Amino acid sequence: MLAIAAAVVFFIAFIINATETSTDIIFRTPSLMLIGFTLISLHLAGVGAGWQARGRRR
């Protein structure tokens, strides 16, 4: 799930860069790329994967 979110953030950064849109400081292309890299690193670290309810095993 985090990898999909990172892909969306990278796509938005690409569109902003390709159209040379003037945006605020937070939504500049390098800022969005750093957010995407953070999401990818969390995905590779295993965060958000394999959520299971703890219960009795039979």
Rank of each mutant, 00 (worst) to 15 (best):
F10E: 00
A49M: 09
L39V: 08
S41V: 13
F14Q: 00
T23W: 06
S31N: 09
D24W: 11
R28K: 15
S31T: 13
A6E: 00
M33Y: 08
L34M: 09
I12R: 02
T23D: 05
I4A: 14
A45R: 12
T23K: 06
T19W: 06
H43T: 10
R28D: 09
Q52C: 14
R56G: 13
T38N: 04
L39C: 09
A7E: 04
F37W: 02
A7C: 04
G55R: 05
G36K: 08
R54C: 10
A3T: 06
S41D: 09
M33E: 06
L42F: 15
V8C: 07
V47G: 09
G55W: 01
S31K: 01
L32T: 00
L44Y: 05
T21S: 03
W51S: 15
V8Y: 02
L39R: 02
G50Y: 07
R56Q: 14
A6T: 00
L39K: 04
L39N: 05
L2E: 05
T23Y: 11
N17K: 07
R57L: 15
S22D: 13
I40P: 01
P30M: 11
M33A: 05
S41P: 03
I40L: 11
F14P: 00
G48P: 07
A5N: 01
D24P: 02
L34A: 13
F11Q: 05
F14E: 04
V47M: 08
I12F: 08
I16V: 07
A6D: 01
F27H: 07
A7T: 01
